[in-house]
Design a protein around this nucleic acid. Structure first.
Length: 460
RNA sequence: GUGGUUGUAGCUCAGCUGGUUAGAGCGCCUGAUUGUGGUUCAGGAGGUCGCCGGUUCGAACCCGGUCUUCCACCCCA
């Protein structure tokens, strides 16, 4: 009995039209990465478990796909561990490799391993799939692509500015208006926690604060209290829930609020200089917004934090994120290397562009010219012509069999081929061919021995 | 990982409190049209109703399990 084929949940097949659209996004991202001076690298799809585990928190560890060892791995497990039926203790005995969870940690590993060949500051980009053992939802897959650009080995605010410009350049070229780059600073979050007297609960505090726009002020406050923050602390955090005004007004409010915290003042100053520079260099299609509730990637970010929200009319999580991490390579033994980077979520950008119908119409087109097939002799002549076209950079194809003409035309129509060539017995005898413009229906005659005029017309 | 939701033709979906042979639109194939597509007309093919089991004289419909989809949490691109 034949088995019904299926693919694992959270994974997808990509058909030609989808690949065309994905490639369009990728081409824009790559082009901009390179215009900004980033160089590509790739790393293996799986790493040693110890490289990945413990880098993303407990929650992250749970979401890492672990790869079973090869061979008779189970016989090497001691009886106690085996019979304990405890996944946490058994896993390391039967699995020592895991699929990569993001591109940042493998990059840190790469930097440490190749530190002697790298010229710092090192600007790298990396576009590869990552895997998460998550429960899928819309725009959330178990296999998806990240497009990362990072720079390591320098510590200057202009880098943050550049990344914001990079986001803007990509979304502008994609024609995606209305994205919002949210920006925050980990030092501001630390400062706030310090000022309100919840320094020891920084993570719980920020995780709760991050949910503000989703669950509202009351529930955020409840969660903070549940996590053990004092009522006074929650009360003191009050002003954060209603930051008013434009970015500079928010900065002023924060500056006052954080005047008693050195690290907080530092964060405000960093944010201010980023905004000062960007006031000079306008953004094209993105708006930049300070959002103190933004707390993503707290695990390794130490300075700026970025997140890109899709245009409001689209129901979609963030389509990009990033930030500065001062000591990511430290865990692999290379200290004092500051890094900052951003990531584009290819799959979500695709969904957004698709929903807003922003893909160029032309990308569905995979052929410029289709030559119809009228029989053996005609097909041989057609192949000569098709070769000439191909050599001139025209995407051309010959219909493989001499099927009925309406069928061949329908095929051309389906594939949205703009020009169809008819080269039948009559044309062959007179050494010419007919070109039909599928849009206008207009037909023109060209010489088989001199197709140049046709090629010229195609390329004009 | 927790709770919920969804699954019927290639696609979008009907299908009454369980009752003969499960339907529509679109798409596909054939013909009108053996050298002209997108329009029209006529005909046709295509479904073990996600899968496994149970209840019943009888299940697309009820029950259990499982997979899948989407949603909320967790977390995140």
């Amino acid at each position: 009995m034949p088995q019904k084929p299926s693919i694992p949940k959270g994974t997808r097949d990509f058909s030609p039209s989808e690949i065309a659209k994905r490639n369009h996004i990728l081409a824009v991202i790559k082009r901009q990465f390179e215009l900004f001076g980033f160089m590509p690298i790739e790393t293996p799809s799986f790493e040693n478990s110890e490289t990945l585990l413990g880098k993303y928190g407990d929650e992250g560890d749970r979401l890492i796909f672990k790869i079973l060892n090869s061979g008779d791995f189970i016989s090497k497990v001691d009886d106690v561990t085996y019979s304990s039926k405890n996944s946490t203790s058994l896993a390391p005995r039967i699995s020592d490799k895991a699929l990569r969870y993001d591109l940042t940690v493998p990059f840190a590993r790469y930097v440490v391993m190749h530190q002697n060949e790298i010229d710092f500051p090192f600007k790298r980009y990396q576009i590869q799939p990552v895997w998460r053992a998550d429960r899928p939802q819309k725009g959330r897959y178990r296999e998806f692509y990240q497009c990362d650009a990072d720079v390591v080995g320098a510590n200057a605010i202009v880098q943050e500015v550049e990344f914001i410009q990079l986001y803007d350049a990509v979304f502008t070229e994609l024609g995606l208006a209305g994205t919002t780059i949210k920006i925050n600073n980990r030092k501001i979050l630390s400062g706030i926690a310090e000022v309100i007297g919840a320094k020891h609960l920084l993570v719980d505090f920020t995780v709760a604060l991050d949910k503000l726009d989703k669950i509202g002020e009351e529930k955020v406050k409840m969660e903070m209290l549940e996590k053990g923050m004092s009522a006074t602390a929650v009360e003191r955090a009050g002003p954060l829930f209603s930051l008013q005004g434009d970015n500079f007004e928010k900065l002023d409010t924060l500056q006052t609020f954080l005047s008693g915290s050195e690290i907080g003042r530092e964060g405000v100053a960093e944010l201010r200089s980023i905004l000062d520079v960007l006031k000079e260099l306008q953004l094209d299609s993105c708006s930049l917004e300070i959002d103190v509730t933004l707390a993503r990637g707290l695990n390794y970010y130490t300075g700026a934090i970025f997140e890109v929200a899709a245009p409001q009319q689209v129901q979609m999580g963030s389509i990009g994120g990033g930030g500065r991490y001062d000591d990511l390579t430290g865990i692999f033994g290379l200290n004092d290397v500051s890094g900052v980077g951003i990531s584009f979520g290819l799959d979500r950008i695709y969904l957004v562009l698709d929903e807003l119908d922003l893909f160029p119409k032309a990308i569905a087109k995979s052929l410029d010219v289709l030559c119809l097939n009228f029989g053996e002799q005609e097909a041989i002549a057609a192949l000569h012509l098709v070769s000439k076209l191909r050599n001139s950079g025209v995407r051309a194809d010959l219909y493989p069999s001499s099927a009925k003409v309406p069928k061949q035309f329908k095929y051309a129509d389906k594939r949205e081929v703009p020009y169809v060539i008819l080269l039948g017995a009559n044309e062959l005898a007179e050494r010419n061919f007919v070109v039909k413009d599928m849009h206008t229906g207009e037909q023109k005659l060209y010489s088989l021995d001199n197709p140049e005029p046709f090629i010229q017309e195609l390329q004009s």
